Simulated scan of single mutants.
Amino acid sequence: MRGIRTDRLVLREPTMADLPAMVAVHTDPGATVFEPEGPRTPEQCHVQLTNWIQRWATDGHCYWIILTDGGPIGFGGIGLCERDGEPYLNLYFRFTPSAWGHGYATEMATAALDLAARRRPDLPVWIVTAAENQRALRIAEKFGFHPIPSPDPDDAFWVYREWRAPTRPRAATTAKVITTDGS
């Protein structure tokens, strides 16, 4: 199993065994407060997790399950996406509300952007979020994402932010790549 260990988190490739955590996070009204469709159904969670697992197999990366010593607290990472034929990496994160305010999103985003800079420095990284999602916009600001125009000028709900890997190497992090045996 592929993943990364940071100071406080394990960010690993999800499996179908993670479906209960997927359902817990993505059906939580608090965790999905900025989703226009609201919480997902368990069936939608199953489809989405299946898609992420397939994307790990084809792309070599996608969204992680995010764990602390206390268990799963969310999902996030970078996934390969496309808009109008142009590829980009989407920085996604969704945490249980009890995990908010502890710096976990910053820690996960640091690992995800380091991965993006190493694996796909040619692609921009986007954050697409609701205009009122101040937590996500603070993460975007913290990492130097800049506003880009919406592909749909009539859409006032979503905002778009873009980040590009620096041309010189980023400072090393304390993140450690982990393998199936956890080493």
Results as ranks from 00 to 15, higher is better:
3 G>W: 00
6 T>D: 01
10 V>E: 10
10 V>A: 08
12 R>F: 12
15 T>M: 07
18 D>A: 07
23 V>M: 08
24 A>M: 11
24 A>I: 02
25 V>Y: 02
26 H>Q: 14
31 A>C: 04
35 E>K: 05
36 P>V: 07
39 P>H: 02
41 T>Q: 10
41 T>L: 08
41 T>S: 15
42 P>V: 04
42 P>E: 04
43 E>G: 13
47 V>T: 09
48 Q>K: 11
48 Q>G: 08
49 L>R: 10
51 N>F: 10
56 W>N: 04
56 W>K: 05
57 A>S: 12
60 G>Q: 09
63 Y>N: 11
64 W>Q: 04
65 I>Q: 02
66 I>H: 01
68 T>K: 04
70 G>E: 14
70 G>S: 14
71 G>D: 02
71 G>R: 02
72 P>M: 02
73 I>L: 01
74 G>V: 00
75 F>M: 03
76 G>E: 00
80 L>S: 03
80 L>F: 02
80 L>E: 02
80 L>C: 04
80 L>V: 02
80 L>R: 14
83 R>S: 13
85 G>S: 11
86 E>S: 09
87 P>F: 09
90 N>Y: 09
90 N>T: 04
92 Y>Q: 07
93 F>P: 06
97 P>F: 01
98 S>R: 14
99 A>L: 01
101 G>F: 05
101 G>V: 03
102 H>W: 06
102 H>Q: 11
104 Y>P: 14
104 Y>A: 10
105 A>P: 05
107 E>W: 08
107 E>G: 11
109 A>D: 07
109 A>G: 09
111 A>G: 08
112 A>T: 04
114 D>L: 13
115 L>P: 02
117 A>Y: 04
124 P>A: 13
126 W>C: 10
127 I>Q: 04
128 V>N: 11
128 V>D: 08
128 V>L: 12
128 V>S: 09
129 T>I: 03
130 A>C: 08
131 A>V: 15
133 N>V: 01
134 Q>R: 14
134 Q>M: 10
135 R>A: 15
138 R>N: 03
139 I>C: 00
140 A>Y: 00
142 K>Q: 12
143 F>H: 01
146 H>A: 13
146 H>L: 14
151 P>I: 07
152 D>S: 10
154 D>N: 13
154 D>E: 14
156 A>V: 08
156 A>W: 01
156 A>N: 06
158 W>Y: 15
159 V>I: 15
159 V>A: 05
160 Y>I: 04
161 R>T: 09
163 W>N: 07
164 R>P: 10
167 T>V: 10
169 P>Y: 03
169 P>A: 15
170 R>T: 14
171 A>Q: 12
171 A>Y: 01
172 A>S: 13
173 T>D: 06
175 A>F: 03
177 V>I: 14
177 V>F: 12
179 T>D: 15
179 T>F: 15
180 T>N: 09
180 T>F: 06
182 G>I: 07
182 G>A: 14
183 S>D: 12
183 S>P: 07
